[in-house]
Amino acid sequence: MTLPGTYVLRRLLIALPSLLGISIVLFTVLALAPGDPFGDIVSNPNIPADVAANLRLKFGMDDPVAVRYLRWLTAMLQGDWGFSFASRIDVDTLIMQRLWTTLLVIGSSQVLALLIALPVGIYAATRPYSLFDQVANTLTFIGFSLPTFFTGLLLILVFSIQLDWLPFVYRSDISATGWRFFWEHFRQTIMPVSVLALFQAASWTRYVRSAALDVIRLDYVTTARSKGLKERVVIMKHVVRNALIPVVTLVALQLPAIFGGAIVTEQIFRVPGIGSLLISAILANDTPVIMAVTFVFSCLVISFNLLADILYGWLDPRISLR
């Protein structure tokens, strides 16, 4: 397949108005939402009323929504993301401070989820309705029925409080060095990563299994077997490769979530990721931070959508992109 340049270009051009639309909707909703980043200042009797008024003026918050939006847009186009009203720090600094932790925790949970989902799903598909398949099925159902806040608390109760093996407060900067540094990091990531991974793995396992089952019944697989190929080769080369096509798209669409973080899990384990930045910004009505995080997230969703589409055509030449 040749990469259709015009197709990509067209998709990118379509993406631009959608991003613009998203940013307008986000900005308006935030402007209309109740709450005020300087609420604390206004309600504090020790602080004169003109302090908040001064700050609003300084940060240009009293201008009409349209003016504020255009100002934000022009700044954003020049790469200036603005600064947080709460901490007065540039938003990109705030995001960069937390990006590493988010990538580490969410990224490794996705990798772990794949490492569980792929072998379990494929093995279950090769032996449908066997004991292994039944057990795996039951576990996946339990896995994605339990919300992460429940499994998170459960793990804390068992491993931190009853057994006292693992810490339940995540610290991004650990003062130890050498092997201890890695060991401490490993210990504290076990629980949040497994909570997220198990949840994700559960649904992916179901997906891999059904995708593999669809392929395994096809004639070419029977042909491959009757050629006398080893079962391992049949599964790995003929089944998995074709079964993975829809799985790859699914995983690609899931990737932006790595940036967005996991709000609930981050809150429970106090992981200083993008998710907890977003939630505290929302609570503090810190518009520039909310705007930046949600906007970057929508950019990622749109571009990964495009990526998935292109990937799809590349993996399966029968699909043509026009």
Binding site: A86, I89, Q97, R98, S172, D173, Q267, P272
Partner: peptide, 30 residues
């Protein structure tokens, strides 16, 4: 890290004698 962590280390020139007791302080948030 705003909203997450403030860390400090002992001030060897502190103006009160024999203080502080701790070598480092970590104020974790969230």
């Amino acid at each position: 890290t705003p909203g997450d962590m403030v860390r400090g280390t002992l001030n060897a020139n502190y103006h009160m004698p024999n203080r502080p007791f701790f070598d480092t302080i970590e104020m974790k948030g969230g």
